[in-house]
Design a binder for these strands. Structure first.
Lengths: 255, 255
DNA sequence: TAGTGGTCTAGACCACTAA
DNA sequence: TAGTGGTCTAGACCACTAC
């Protein structure tokens, strides 16, 4: 008391609420357990529903909660570690790491991808590229959707392919790619929001936070392919292991 | 017309708004330019301010906008690529890559970090560890704040250190660490929200989205140190280059 | 002091899920 | 059909910045 200015710089209600809820989750709830609904929680804490939702959104962003319309809010399991760059260089599809080919079409790549492909063998900006869609499933859960862009100039053999569409064609494109000698690759990771099609594939709403992993594949002739993989940010922890050891605990469970 | 069910599955207003704004940003605005204020934008589009804000939040999450209280909303520059794992294994502080040591204290590590350190030389759970704080500046902009945890058992020489506090002590801890032989390291990346102290260092509000990069450093004896780096998710693209080539364009500018 | 974005309220209605 | 989370509104006040 006295001169203690305990609340002279009050933190926002939703922030305090998030802290309180976070501690409650640690102590009183088990993974998978269902929380009281939003209207009741808001009443219990004496705040408007919108304020309560702001706190829940933060906790969902941190992977502590899972909310499903029509069902309720449940306590999320720890994030799953997903290996992204463990074993040196390799073409996509060379190891059975949970990726499954879905489809392949020929289409003009988005501008940002074209910029990355510009350093490839005989690549013209408005030329259609083979576009392979894959999804990745880990522990029974869809964690990522990928679009792999392969200019026709990179894999000449593809002009005589038989499968017109579907997984068979996607696998054929990957097979042709693997014939080439891979000289190197590099990756970048950034935050994004799920496009409508990716969101559907990942069982999320459009705009859900995702981690975008962009990979460039190099041959002696330049950039032979580019992939953009969209990982669920709420459930995934991307691991880049030089050693074979896996990080098993989350980085910041209850800091 | 006719049977075209153009709006039979209407997308949310804020989502449509985001798309419209995104296109406007591409066409009519230059980097750094100030947008009209939120009340006017909301009026212009005929929506409530909260709805307009939902669209702006998405665009900020994608790194397209920058909002500052008391100032306004500006068009953000493209994300800066920040090298995170380019040059094989190395102890923190061994290369001049923008990191600056701030301080070092002895304190008990958070539970999640203790779990990672458990495989180290003679590490007891409640034993204080040397905690080094560093910040990383790229192109004049603070992009990351890091806490590096080094158990006393990893660097025995530190008991006789002279600098009691401040950058000098932080550098001393790093120097002792670099005496050891580094056997390997691994990394993981996940989405988080900025703690109050990190947010301040990064010039963001608490709860701002960040990319958490957790690195484990191994010697022959086990886990010798763990670092948790907090990168601004709005302005940073983390790059993991095997080759020395830099990705210069964003992965998905206008998809 | 004026203008900005940040927080908060108390409602309303909608879309979805499961019984 | 009942109950959940998702969207949206029309206000209010606050904290911060720059003049």
């Amino acid at each position: 008391m006295g001169t203690t200015q305990l609340e002279s710089v009050p933190e926002p209600k939703y922030w305090h609420l998030k802290t309180v809820l976070s501690e409650a989750l640690d102590q009183d709830f088990a993974v998978g357990e269902v929380l009281p609904n939003e209207r009741e929680l808001a009443a219990r804490f004496g705040v408007a529903r919108a304020t309560l939702r702001q706190a829940l959104e933060q906790l969902e962003l941190e992977g502590r909660l899972q909310r499903r319309r029509g069902v309720g809010t449940t306590v999320a399991p720890p994030r799953v570690g997903v290996a992204v760059g463990s074993t040196g260089h390799s073409w996509p599809g060379e190891s059975a790491d949970g990726w499954e080919a879905v489809d392949a079409v020929e289409a003009v790549a988005p501008a940002a991808v074209r910029a990355l492909l510009a350093a490839g063998p005989g690549f013209a900006a408005d030329q259609p590229v083979h576009t392979v869609r894959r999804t990745r499933v880990t522990q029974g859960q869809a964690v990522a959707a990928e679009l792999l862009y392969v200019p026709a100039g990179s894999v000449p053999g593809l002009s005589a392919i038989d499968a017109p569409t579907g997984p068979a064609r996607a696998r054929a494109v990957l097979r042709e790619l693997q014939r080439l000698t891979l000289d190197g690759q590099d990756r970048s990771v950034e935050l994004g929001s799920a496009r409508a099609d990716d969101a559907k594939e990942l069982d999320r709403l459009p705009g859900a936070p995702v981690l975008l992993v962009t990979t460039r594949y190099f041959t002696a002739e330049g950039t032979a392919a580019v992939s953009v993989a969209t990982y669920r940010a709420d459930t995934c922890r991307l691991t880049f292991g030089d050693s074979g050891v896996e990080i098993t605990a989350p980085a910041r469970a209850a800091s």
